[in-house]
Design a protein around this nucleic acid. Structure first.
Lengths: 186, 186, 186, 186
DNA sequence: CATGAATGAGAATTCATTCAT
DNA sequence: CATGAATGAATTCTCATTCAT
């Protein structure tokens, strides 16, 4: 869509370093972390950040977008390779585990206090996830009455919860199992 | 314990108004909302807030404490009156519904970037909730292998998720039902 | 002059306690110390302070006035009793030692960042000190060409210096000796 | 030592303007003067001040440091050029005259409620002053029993006194003469 | 394009002073 | 009169954003 002219090599490199640094910093310090800190971590001057992302909000949004893309990619990979029956559960687990590492994963469904435009990515995500769900339903590994929006809600809850307390691995595993069980046919 | 002399009538009134306003404001805007906004909403000068709560952090902590107390009270009420089999589920539902209104409910299990001393309240909460769970287990309405920490984790997830997107009531209801189902014996 | 109606017993008591507390607090913390701290130290409510001294400045001024009076009293005592030749030196020493204990002594000649009206007290002080000087001059223990304003200047310097570094007693004694020597005939 | 990368031209210019303005403002209003006033006087925004001096205390410290350096430079100049017999007296006089203009000169010996790290500068100052004193002693213009710490104490007293009342030039001159006389052999 | 200094609008917090209890 | 809560202006400091170098 917005083709936005091809960046110079160094510019592209900077953009990447900024995004990486920002993901780290915001994951550690929360969205209130200062842009200056991102700049330091990225090894660029603060002006460079604002050249690439006119607003702090834009920077946040860009991170989200990247994250979302990563999640979508994973879903599509599973869709292509994975066994229909378990791919759905694997994906759900993957999402929770991801959010256990990095903070912001849950923000892809909602915002996180900085309301980002989910845009069409959300649609793509939802659709792919839906396909995984359908496959599982057909394979009989998921209750037939479970709806996609409910699953999304559960994921959102689980991922936000997962990060919140940074619970012990063991607890997270057991709780997740319980959750997934809720989706299985009786 | 900490009796801290009885406040003057007007002071007590203001304290209450401040807490109420703060709960609203922080629920709407997140913990980064300005103290001035709380003051405006409460109809007091900003100095008054800092007289009652010397630090913004103290104000946050006070809100949490109040919330926790409210939750504990409700649990104890259910423990006294409710039918053992369903009281547990009612309480779980109550928690989720509460957090649909106010943000911070989940904060009682974790913090939320402002690390407040949960202190003994948490213990009280956990214990009471545990008793509800035991009762339900004995009544046979809950799977015998469900552990308290898992339940707490689910609550934490559900309440944080519930607020995040402020989903439609219908969706919240369905998702909650799914969640509760996961706890029921098969 | 301003007779200002006789205070009630408790009011007079409070006034004294406030002055005492204020002298302590301002000596310790400097004139930037908060009025609240004075109130706490005096064991009264802050409103009581402002009833007695409508302004912080007034409170400062009152302390100064008291101090000055104390110094004048001492001078007059020495004038009455002391041997003419040494009384002057004793008084000079007394002033420096006083200021070594409490801060604000030097403030009686100048202000101290809060410009207080020295009023007629200064005149009294200066006059009495002048009499001591004259006596010493007549007794031949002071250089005949030393003028009163020079002596006052030296006192001011010495007292402010004395407090500044809170030097060791020994050093203060030696330096003072040097200073007094400067006033003696050769 | 601490080379701290060379500032950009405009930054260096601003730093200098800030220091100059701060010296003025704090000399006039005391260390309680507001940073905003310094900014106004310097013609910069308040943020600029805090970029250069992260804390008000840092700003105060920087002023002190500059002042101290100026004093040291003068002493070394006198040490190089001046006639040994009078250089010491000239320097003493210079110190008092300096403090008649600016407040803070005495602050190099003590602090002034904002306790700044005098560090090695003090040592340098003391040593150079000591050399001047030794030279004068050898030249026979100073009493042989006068010690350096006494001289420093007198300087401290004189400079703080000098500023306090901003006495008339004439009085300051006479008092200073008296003081210096105290140091001369009889 | 990158740099990093300057800007200036908040934000938290303090404190003299007022005034209802 | 005393009390101590309320007021609100002032202060220090932070940070997103702009812009000269």
């Amino acid at each position: 869509m917005t083709a936005s002219k091809p960046l110079r090599a160094d510019a592209r490199r900077n953009r990447a370093r900024i995004l990486a640094a920002a993901e780290e910093v915001f994951a550690e310090r929360g969205p209130a972390a200062s842009t200056q800190e991102v700049a330091d971590r990225a090894g660029v001057a603060i002006g460079t950040i604002f050249r690439h992302f006119p607003t702090k909000r834009d920077l946040l949004a860009a991170i989200m977008k990247e994250l979302r893309q990563r999640l979508i990619d994973k879903a599509e990979a599973l869709l292509a390779d994975g066994p229909p029956g378990t791919a759905f559960f694997d994906y759900f687990t993957f999402l929770v585990e991801s959010s256990a590492r990095v903070d912001t994963v849950a923000g892809l469904l909602a915002d996180e206090g900085t309301a980002i435009q989910p845009g069409e990515q959300i649609a793509a995500f939802t659709q792919t996830f839906g396909t995984l769900l359908d496959a599982a339903r057909e394979a009989g590994t998921v209750r037939p009455d479970v709806r996609l929006d409910e699953v999304m809600a559960l994921v959102s809850a689980a991922t936000q919860g997962a990060l919140a307390g940074s619970w012990p691995d063991d607890l997270r595993r057991r709780t997740l199992a319980l959750l997934l069980d809720a989706l299985r046919p009786r």
